[in-house]
Write a protein that binds this DNA or RNA. Structure first.
Length: 425
RNA sequence: GGAGAGGUGGCAGAGUGGUCGAAUGCGGCGGUCUUGAAAACCGUUGACCCGCAAGGGUCCGGGGGUUCGAAUCCCUCCCUCUCCGCCA
């Protein structure tokens, strides 16, 4: 959600900024609605004040033993007037809020111009795609060949876009998760969080998935209004909802491993092969709650924490700055990290690190007490994958494959694999 | 699942339908005293909205109702706690 003051005072600038995303914002209509709100609010408050004053005088008169009947008659009609003004005011308020909740975040000035993925800007690369010396297989061929990746079984149990893993491959997947959690908690100072996988609508509104992107979510059947989390960002960021955080508590650094559930509505036909795009996948998520002045330094730091995972796993990657049109709804600026997949012969997203500035904080009413002003002020929130476990598994399979269809285990994962150095082959 | 109790300011905890945004205590902040600190004493201390300001308005878990007027009465939902049952 954007600052209402900004929407009142800098409407043209807001419109221009949102325009960079290609977001059509009807500023004149918004201004008209806002002006109506203001007029109505004044009217309601004046009516309420008149009623309060009158009612108070009734109390005093009665305490003094006077006849209050004339006063009662005089006040009665004020209540009716107030009621109708309130109803109208409420309608306008709701309309305004609907618009506000549907506006994406303002972009940081450093976000490159552009409309699609193709306009994203490469910031840096790390590692060199390995020379395998043979024709690389993709993770599907490798996993199915080993008998450890089973899409048919998943289709039988559930349906399309699910995976069954067996044996050492399932263990490798778990090892990746353990490795990442240990790294972030022991080396990077994050506090491990275990959080619910089902959340309520308010949490999803807080982080920005609702009200606009309900189609991307799985809602559970039954009388409870719960949704499966599309990312740990939702429960973990909402830890600070409706709270005022002491200055010395910041920054808050949280890491959580959770499954993620996405309906992938609108992506029919995309990445249908393999486990690149699933309805259910595991992810280790980094979340930081910081002072506003620190958030851009934190974005660099947090992105670095995700990069170290890939460096330690020996996976070549590149970092890109998302362009204006490709930056997500709640983000002011986003870096994507893309890992090299020999089987596809290209880089694929494995992490997305965003600074949401005060966008989520405002929706969540998440604040800190600024010692400089003594007042509660909005925090900045950041999140990033550190990293997606399913895609990390794919990257390891394809980058560490051997000519005989086996997979070597990266050195840093050996302790988690009980010394198993290779799978298959 | 059954029975009961309760949700009030940073925390604890009062509050007869009118003078209650709310007693009191703790905590916080400022001051007096002190070489400094503690103690004691004095003062001060919620959030949000409109407004340049003066000022006005809203908020006692959420929503609805009764009333001229609701923290207080009624309905409903949510949450917490206790006991029983069940379970990992």
């Amino acid at each position: 959600m954007l600052d209402q003051k900004l929407l009142r005072t800098e409407l043209a600038a807001v419109q221009a900024n949102l325009g960079r995303r290609g977001f059509p914002f009807d500023a004149p209509a918004y201004r008209a609605l806002e002006e109506r709100r203001k007029a109505l609010q004044v009217r309601v408050e004046e009516a309420r004040n008149a009623r309060n004053v009158q009612s108070k005088s009734i109390g005093k008169a009665r305490a003094a033993g006077e006849d209050i009947q004339p006063l009662l008659d005089a006040v009665r009609s004020l209540g009716d007037e107030l009621q109708s003004a309130e109803d109208e005011f409420e309608g306008v308020q709701t309309g305004l809020r609907d618009v506000q909740l549907s506006l994406p975040n303002l972009l940081h000035e450093s976000v490159p111009a552009g409309t699609t993925e193709a306009d994203n800007v490469e910031i840096r690369t790390w590692g060199e795609p390995a020379e395998l010396g043979f024709e690389p297989q993709d993770h599907v061929a490798l996993g199915v060949g080993l008998g450890q990746l089973d899409f048919d079984a998943a289709a039988l149990i559930t349906g399309a876009r699910f995976t069954v893993m067996r044996g050492p491959l399932a263990r490798l997947h778990r090892a990746i998760i353990q490795f990442m959690l240990n790294l972030h908690t022991e080396q990077h100072g994050y506090t491990e969080i275990y959080a619910p996988y089902l959340v309520n609508a308010r949490s999803l509104e807080g982080t920005g998935q609702l009200p606009k992107f309900g189609a991307d979510l799985f809602a559970i059947a039954g009388d409870q209004d719960f949704y499966l989390i599309p990312t740990a960002e939702v429960p973990v960021t909402n830890l600070v909802r409706d709270s005022i955080i002491a200055a010395d508590q910041l920054p808050l650094k949280f890491v959580a491993h959770t499954p993620c559930f996405r309906s992938e509505a609108g992506s029919h036909g995309k990445d249908t092969r393999g486990m690149i795009r699933q309805h259910q996948f595991e992810k280790v998520e980094l979340v930081q709650i910081v002072r506003p002045e620190d958030s851009y330094a934190t974005l660099e730091e947090l992105t670095g924490h995700a990069e170290i995972v890939l460096q330690m796993l020996g996976l070549p990657y590149r970092v890109t700055a998302l362009c204006a049109g490709d930056t997500g709804f709640g983000a002011a600026k986003t870096y994507d990290i893309e890992v090299w997949l020999p089987g596809q012969g290209r880089y694929r997203e494995i992490s997305s690190c965003s600074n949401c500035e005060s966008f989520q904080a405002r929706r969540m009413s998440a604040r800190w007490r600024n010692p400089a002003t003594g007042k509660p002020e909005l925090v900045h929130t950041l999140n990033g994958s550190g990293v997606a476990a399913g895609r990390a598994l794919i990257a390891i399979m394809e980058n560490y494959q051997t000519a005989d269809g086996g997979i070597r285990v990266p050195d840093v994962l050996l302790p988690y694999m009980h010394g198993m150095e290779r799978i298959g082959g």
